[in-house]
Amino acid sequence: MSHGDHSRDPCPYVILNDFGGAFSMGAIGGGIWHGIKGARNSPRGERFVGSMSAIKARAPVLGGNFGVWGGLFSTFDCAVKGYRQKEDPWNAIISGFLTGGSLALRAGPRSAFGSAVGCGILLGVFEGVGVLMNRMFAQPIPQMQLPEQAAAPSAPAVSAA
């Protein structure tokens, strides 16, 4: 498609969508994960209570971490797209770099740079895998039927006559 996919909103609004999507993913996934973990770590008879308290304590935090990461990434992605005026894998890599860097900013420039490079490489791997999958599963473009071929059934009748 020439104009991106229509399954997502245009750029400024997609940030809200990504924020919420990442937060929901983190919170619901964290609820399941910490529910099981809390139940396993509790003594018998206290399993439900332990599971609930683990969910309450940790699932929103995990959701928040996911949400901030996803929202920041989406924001940077939109900014990079707007600045570069093109859509390619480099957008994701650059915004991954910026996200990792800004999330680790309080730990000092050295640590921020390390985190940024790590995030950029991670996103680069993701994008590379995505491109490879695209190539692997892309259907070959079907040959368009030419008008003569469509009219071919009438030709034998003419030659026979």
Partner: peptide, 20 residues
């Protein structure tokens, strides 16, 4: 305000707006 494509879109946009 935003066109929605079903409950996942509602969930994502609603949660994102509230969270933000």
């Amino acid at each position: 305000v935003l066109p929605s494509r079903g409950w996942t879109d509602d969930l994502c946009v609603g949660t994102g707006t509230t969270y933000l």
